[in-house]
Write a protein that binds this DNA or RNA. Structure first.
Length: 516
RNA sequence: CGGGGCGUGGCGCAGCUUGGUAGCGCGUCUGCUUUGGGAGCAGAAGGUCCCCGGUUCAAGUCCGGGCGCCCCGACCA
């Protein structure tokens, strides 16, 4: 059976991932090392994710703003932990002009900036500077803002969508009167992320708190949503941080309380990035290419007219366009159905495979026979293969297809979620009680570059939640198995066994996994 | 930034060990045929063999130095 890709998940997951990105026409590498070109189909997915999330961000009382790309270097000196975390990956602007010297276009040495500017790796510092001016009284709180932006983090090793030097994201920044309110905000936005991931991306996640060593630089607490990819690895799909008063202290963000005292604000920040698209690929993709959840598919129903250079072509095309127009009048997920007629020249079979790789949920083929019978022949991308290793197609009367389109899209959306949810739930082992058992399950760290390791899921186990040097020891032991602590799930059991690492009384359960 | 692998028409690759006219598959273009599940035949276009230097009568091939990509590690969303 010929598949849509010449790479499989089974044989080489990393190679398969790259093949999907390329063949689904999502993105490509650029002349700039580590930075990607997001192509229309990939950017269309991002725009839909943005739309869903932006609506929720506003519904929870936040307003959008825009802060500068370039941040004075001195701003980063204010919060020690924060600088430490980002110092090694910052792009720095030092000059403001070019000049032709000896016939060479070069940086003008005469045009050196007095203070270097860094390209934002995140905006806590420059937004905090504004918060300092914006917050005067308890009446100004909570201050709830968000920005959609690009950021740069100079990465050593990049992979399209998953880790690039420049990426797109949303960063929310808020200031609150007290810890309780700020912590509630942190968890509220974590829940928004869970909802978008699960409802829109059909990507089930586990919400939880990151261990101390995995916190955002400068944060008091970091929460994440973690998703399981088809190779069993975890992907941190979003983070939400309770920053305590450390940024408020560093940047003097204070307010006068009702009783007249000057108090420090408690701040939060939270973000999701274009990495989510990588998560969608690795959650739903198959050996024929991408499979898109309908809610984030730039086109939900792609209609391929079967044109044969015959007089009836005009009729077929008209039928296809009429179908698309009528589908656009149908609502799915409270929005008009996105339907496209692929009028490009070429054989319909080639065009069909092109769309299989790109992953719209429904592909319709319309030929003279459909026109004559007043019917629609459709393929479900989530159930591509039928009997006899042939692509499965279904015929239905045109009116019936249109009437059922929204329900079919909803069914595909929930079906993809259910499939991913079963994989997540079915691959978290909770029966491992000792480090030896953990080592036995994950096996020795691969000493060679075997790209095709057997599937390993996650382990949910109990630990004593050590900190400092004791935590370092745990981290190192896990590292020997190429494992990391993903998070401590928010939903915890009432009774706990002993710590897997130390045998001490357990404090909480954590998820341990290999990760992106 | 360390270890390994790889850079050859748009894409995927062979050729390199043992130097001697640049190849294959897919795609593209033209024509004819075909026509509802990845078409057939015939013809055509398309390559500074990543870059710079060296050895040689002769370098895709050998040597040196760069750059880029991929995998593993360190770092990270």
């Amino acid at each position: 059976m010929e598949r849509g890709l010449n790479a499989t998940r089974e044989a080489d997951f990393a190679n398969w991932y790259q093949a999907v990105v390329r063949e689904a026409d999502l993105a490509e590498t650029s002349p700039v090392r580590g930075a990607m070109i997001i192509k229309p189909w990939g950017y269309g997915i991002w725009e839909l994710i943005q739309g869903e999330l932006d609506r929720r961000i506003k519904a929870t009382g936040h307003q959008n703003v825009y802060f500068p790309l370039l941040i004075p270097l001195s701003f980063f000196a204010k919060e020690a932990t924060h600088v430490e975390g980002f110092a090694k990956e910052m792009a720095v602007v030092t000059h403001h002009r070019l000049a032709v010297i000896d016939g060479q276009l070069t940086v003008d040495p005469e045009a050196k900036l007095e203070e270097p500017l860094v390209v934002r790796p995140t905006s806590e510092t420059i937004i905090g500077d504004a918060f300092h001016r914006w917050v005067r009284s308890y009446r100004d709180l909570p201050l709830l803002i968000n920005q959609w932006a690009n950021i740069v983090r100079w990465e050593m090793r990049t992979r399209l969508f998953l880790r690039t030097s420049e990426f797109l994201w949303q960063e929310g920044h808020t200031a609150h009167a007290d810890r309780e309110d700020a912590l509630a905000e942190t968890l509220r936005m974590l829940e928004v992320y869970r909802d978008v991931a699960e409802r829109c991306l059909a990507m089930p996640v586990v919400t939880g708190e990151k261990p101390e060593n995995e916190r955002f630089p400068g944060a008091d607490a970091t929460y994440s949503i973690e998703a399981m990819m088809q190779d069993g690895k975890a992907l941190q799909a979003a983070t939400s941080h309770y920053l305590g008063t450390s940024f408020a202290e560093a940047q003097n963000i204070r307010y006068q309380s009702e009783t007249g005292e000057l108090r420090l604000c408690h701040t939060t920040s939270w973000g999701i990035t274009t990495r989510l698209i990588g998560g969608v690929i690795m959650t739903h993709g198959d050996d024929d290419g991408l499979r898109l959840p309908p809610m984030i598919a730039p086109q939900q129903i792609v209609i391929v007219p079967i044109l044969r250079d015959r007089p009836e072509d005009a009729e077929v095309l008209a039928y296809a366009e009429g179908l698309a127009a009528e589908l656009s009048g149908v609502d799915a997920f409270r929005q008009p159905v996105r339907a496209l007629v692929d009028k490009r020249p070429g054989r319909s079979a080639d065009k069909r495979w092109d769309w299989v790789r790109r992953g719209p949920p429904i592909i319709v083929e319309v030929g003279p026979r459909d026109v004559a019978a007043g019917q629609v022949t459709s393929i479900r991308r989530d159930r591509l293969w039928g009997e006899n290793e042939r692509i499965a197609s279904t015929g239905a009367p045109r009116s019936e297809f249109i009437a059922g389109a929204a329900a079919l899209l909803a069914e595909i959306q929930s079906g993809l979620y259910a499939e991913a949810k079963a994989r997540l739930d079915g691959n978290i082992r909770a029966d491992i009680r000792s480090f030896d058992e953990l080592a036995a399950y994950f096996g020795p760290a691969a000493e060679d570059d075997d790209a095709n390791e057997p599937f390993k899921g996650w382990v949910r186990c109990t630990w004593s939640k050590p900190s400092g040097a004791e935590l370092d020891v745990v981290e190192q032991r896990l590292k020997s198995l190429k494992l990391t602590i993903r998070n401590a799930p928010l939903v915890q059991p009432t009774a706990l066994g002993p710590c897997l690492f130390t045998g001490k009384p357990g404090v909480e359960e954590i998820l341990v996994a290999r990760a992106y």
